[in-house]
Simulated scan of single mutants.
Amino acid sequence: MSALRILHLSDTHFSGDGGRHYGVVDTAEHLRRALSHVGHLTFDLVVVSGDVSQDGSEESYRQVRDAVTPWARARGARAVFAMGNHDQRGAFRAVLGSGQPDADEQQPPGVDLDRPVVSLVAQDGWRIVVLDTSVPGAGYGHLESEQLSFLKEILAEPAAHGTVVIVHHPPLPAQTALLQALALDEHDGRELLDIVRGTDVRVILSGHYHLPITEIVAGVPVTVAPGVTNLARAFADPAEESAIDGFGGSVVTIDGDHVRIVPFVERLTPDDVVFHYDADVVAQIIQDAGRAN
C-alpha cells in the first residue's frame, strides 16, 4: 500500500486588507512560520481545513492560495481547502474552486454558487473528499442530507488505498461552552460517523477548535488541527474562552494499517493573550450566535 503524508493546517483567518486578526495577529506571518516549521519535509497533500478567510474576500483567498500552493508543489504535494464558518462560498469558489483546485474535481450534480462547496478527487489510489459544514451567517456547523448521501454513495465502493474526509466542524464535542455552542450539529456528527464506520475512511481532518485533538471513533481517527492564527486554551475555565499568540498544525502519515498524527504548536510570546472572554461575555455570544434550542 502506498503511504500518504499530509500537512494538516486549519483556521488561517486571512483578511483581504492584511489586517491583524483581533487587532493582534499577523496571519501571514503565522502561516509563513507554520510552513517553515515543516519545510524540510515532503508531502502528498497540504490541507487547510476551513476558515481559510476571516472576511470572505477574494483577495484573502488569493493570499492564502499564493502562499500555500507553490510551497506545496515544491514539496511534491497539492493543496486542498475546505469551507469554514467564516468563509464565503462565492468568493471561495471564485479563487479555490471546490477546494481541490490542483486536480480534476468531481462534484455531485446540481451544485451552484449558493450550495455547499463539496468535491471528490481520486488520485494514485487515494480518494480525497471535501465536505462543507458551513451555515451562511452562522458560526455553528451543519451537514445537510445531500452531502451525507453523497458521502455514503461514494464510500460504497472502496478506493485502492483508502479515503480521507475533510470537514471544518469536527464530529466531536468541544472543550469549552462557547465552541460547543458553535459546534457541528450533534445529529449530523453522529450520522457522519455512522456513515464512515466500517468503510475505507482512514482519517477525518477538521479544524474550528484551534487546538489539537485526536479521538478514535468507530475505528476512525478524527483529528483537529491547532489553529494557524492562534492557539485556544484547552484547560482553562470552560465557561470562558481565550487564545494565545501562536501557531500550529499536524503531520498526518497513513502507511499500511498505521495512521500517525504528530501535532506541533509554537507560542510566539509566552504571555501574549490574543483575546480573553469571561463567562458573561461567552454567555452573551452564545445567546447571540449559538444554535437556537
Rank of each mutant, 00 (worst) to 15 (best):
V196E: 00
V201M: 12
R115T: 15
E146R: 10
P171D: 00
V135A: 04
V167T: 12
A156W: 01
H168L: 03
D132L: 02
P116S: 05
E157T: 15
A177M: 13
Y140E: 01
V165C: 07
T133Y: 07
I166H: 05
V130W: 05
P170E: 01
S134Q: 09
P136F: 06
R127W: 10
K152N: 14
D188A: 01
G139F: 14
L192E: 00
H161Q: 12
G139L: 09
P171R: 06
S145W: 04
P171Y: 11
D185W: 12
L193F: 02
L143K: 04
L120G: 00
D185P: 06
V118Q: 05
Q175N: 09
V117M: 08
H208K: 14
R202M: 08
G141E: 01
T133D: 15
V130E: 06
Q147D: 00
I128T: 15
I195P: 00
D188Y: 12
L182S: 03
L151F: 08
W126C: 09
L193D: 00
E153L: 01
G139S: 04
G139P: 02
P171T: 12
L184M: 07
P171Q: 04
D124G: 15
H208V: 06
D200G: 05
L193H: 04
G125F: 11
I166F: 05
S119A: 15
D114V: 08
D124L: 11
A138R: 15
T133K: 12
V121P: 09
V196S: 02
G137H: 05
L131P: 08
V130K: 09
L192A: 02
L178K: 05
Q147P: 02
D194A: 11
D114F: 13
K152Y: 13
S134N: 05
V167D: 14
D188C: 12
G141V: 14
L182N: 06
V203T: 10
P170M: 02
A183R: 08
G125D: 09
S206D: 11
G139Q: 14
E157N: 12
H161V: 11
T133P: 10
S134A: 15
G207N: 10
Y140V: 06
R115M: 14
V167P: 04
T163Q: 07
Q180P: 04
D114W: 10
S206G: 14
L192H: 00
D194N: 12
V165R: 06
V196F: 02
L205G: 11
Q123V: 14
W126P: 10
R202L: 01
E144C: 09
I154N: 02
V164M: 09
V196K: 03
V164H: 09
D188V: 03
Q180W: 06
H142A: 15
Y140F: 13
D132P: 11
S134M: 07
G137D: 06
R202T: 05
L192D: 01
G139K: 14
H208S: 04
